[in-house]
Every structure is written in C-alpha cells, then in structure tokens.
Simulated scan of single mutants.
Amino acid sequence: MTNRELKSIVEAILFAWSEPLHIDELMKIIDQDKRTTRSILKELQDEFDHYRRGIVINERDDHFQMSTRKEHQEYLAKLIKQSNKKISNSSMEVLAIIAYKQPVTRVEIDNIRGVKSYSSIDTLKAKNLIKEVGKADTIGKPILYATTNEFLRAFDLSSLAELPSIDNLDKLDLDLEDDYDEN
C-alpha cells in the first residue's frame, strides 16, 4: 500500500469516527507501526495547514480527531446555536477542582468547596467533561472522577500538563461565560 493510500485511509477514518481516536487503535486498523502511523498523521496535519483547509487534525494525549479550524468559529457560530453549551460558575469550580486534583472523589470536592456538588458533577458528566475512572480504596469505595478528552478539546489543551500552574491562576483573565452555559 502506498503512503498516499494510507493517508487517504487515515483521513477517512478520522472523518468517519467523530470521537478522538488513540494512535494505538489507528495503528491496528491500518496495520502499521507507531512510527509510520505518526508520520502519516503529521503529513496530513501539515497538508491541512499548508492548504489552509477548513478542517484540522488535533492531537491530545496521543488521541487524534478532526475538527474545524478555530479561525472559522465566528462563521460556524452563525450556523449553530451556542446557548446550551455554557456551564455555571459552580460547575466550573468543580471542573477546576477535578482538573487539578484528579482522580478525586465527590466528598473531596465537597470538602474543598464547602458545599454539595451532586448537580455540578451530573452536569459535567452529561457534557462529557468528566468521567468516572474507578473507585477509591477507602470505606464505601467512593467513585473517582477525572477529566476527559472532551475537556482537553473544550479548553484547547493537548494534555493536562498545559493547565496553568495553580500559583499563576490569579494572573489569568478568564471569561467563563463565552464557552459554556448550564441549561
């Protein structure tokens, strides 16, 4: 199989599979080693960028996914109503705690916040920003929560290592109303 055919196959797979796809899964599907698969993905990314295509291939924690180019968001916003994507400040607070403390239990989140977090956790799970990742090895085996690849995508992060340092958070000017709303 030629490199051109492999690129075409990978492009079709990423287009058809709207969820992030781990490189190991892609390797199995196209029956290639990791180096070759990564090379094909890099070539596709470079081509999409060179020709300023409306679609890009994003990488987050070895997961690859097609998405629209960020520069076209204002035009897409005219097509898609954004109102149901915002989340409340309390849910954003819970999300921040999970992002920085993961894996973390609801009780730990409640203790940090000083209030119950059931509703916020349910909202964040429904929006696929957090997920259950296991159970703590303590009495009652409480559920552990962590962020998802959708969280990385929503905040334009390649990995959790790109989260700002907790010490620098007060220096950031965050407008939380732009991206999400809880409805």
Results as ranks from 00 to 15, higher is better:
Met1Phe: 11
Arg4Thr: 05
Glu5Arg: 14
Leu6Cys: 03
Leu6Lys: 12
Val10His: 01
Ala12Arg: 12
Leu14Val: 06
Glu19Gly: 04
Glu19Thr: 07
Pro20Tyr: 03
Pro20Val: 03
Leu21Lys: 05
Ile23His: 01
Ile23Cys: 00
Ile23Tyr: 02
Asp24Met: 09
Leu26Gly: 05
Leu26Arg: 06
Ile30Leu: 07
Asp31Met: 06
Gln32His: 10
Asp33Gly: 12
Thr36Asn: 12
Ser39Met: 06
Ser39Ala: 11
Lys42Trp: 05
Glu43Tyr: 08
Glu43Ala: 12
Leu44Pro: 02
Gln45Ser: 15
Gln45His: 13
Asp46Gln: 15
Glu47Ala: 13
Glu47Met: 08
Phe48Arg: 00
Asp49Ser: 07
Asp49His: 12
Asp49Pro: 01
Arg52Cys: 08
Val56Trp: 07
Val56Phe: 13
Asn58Met: 11
Arg60His: 14
Asp62Lys: 13
Phe64Gly: 04
Gln65Pro: 03
Gln65Asp: 00
Met66Thr: 05
Met66Lys: 15
Thr68Ile: 15
Arg69Ala: 14
Gln73Asp: 08
Glu74Ser: 15
Tyr75His: 09
Tyr75Ala: 13
Tyr75Ser: 04
Lys78Ile: 01
Lys78Val: 01
Gln82Ile: 13
Lys85Pro: 02
Ile87Thr: 12
Ser90Met: 15
Ser91Trp: 03
Met92Asn: 14
Glu93Lys: 03
Glu93Met: 00
Val94Phe: 02
Ala96Cys: 12
Ile97Asp: 00
Ile98Leu: 09
Lys101Asn: 09
Lys101Ile: 00
Lys101Val: 01
Lys101His: 07
Gln102Thr: 09
Thr105Val: 01
Arg106Val: 02
Arg106His: 08
Val107Leu: 14
Val107Asn: 14
Val107Ile: 10
Val107Met: 13
Ile112Asn: 04
Ile112Ala: 04
Arg113Ser: 07
Val115Pro: 00
Ser117Tyr: 00
Leu124Met: 13
Ala126Lys: 15
Ala126Val: 08
Asn128Leu: 05
Glu132Lys: 11
Glu132Trp: 03
Glu132Pro: 10
Gly134Asn: 07
Gly134Val: 11
Gly134Cys: 01
Thr138Val: 15
Ile139Trp: 09
Gly140Asn: 03
Lys141Val: 08
Pro142Trp: 00
Ile143Gly: 07
Tyr145Met: 04
Tyr145Gln: 01
Ala146Met: 03
Ala146Val: 02
Thr148Cys: 04
Phe155Tyr: 14
Asp156Ser: 12
Asp156Pro: 03
Asp156Phe: 06
Asp156Arg: 06
Leu157Met: 13
Ser158Gly: 09
Ser165Gln: 04
Ile166Ser: 05
Asp167Tyr: 11
Leu169Gly: 03
Lys171Ser: 10
Asp173Arg: 08
Leu176Trp: 09
Asp178Asn: 14
Tyr180Ser: 13
Tyr180Leu: 11
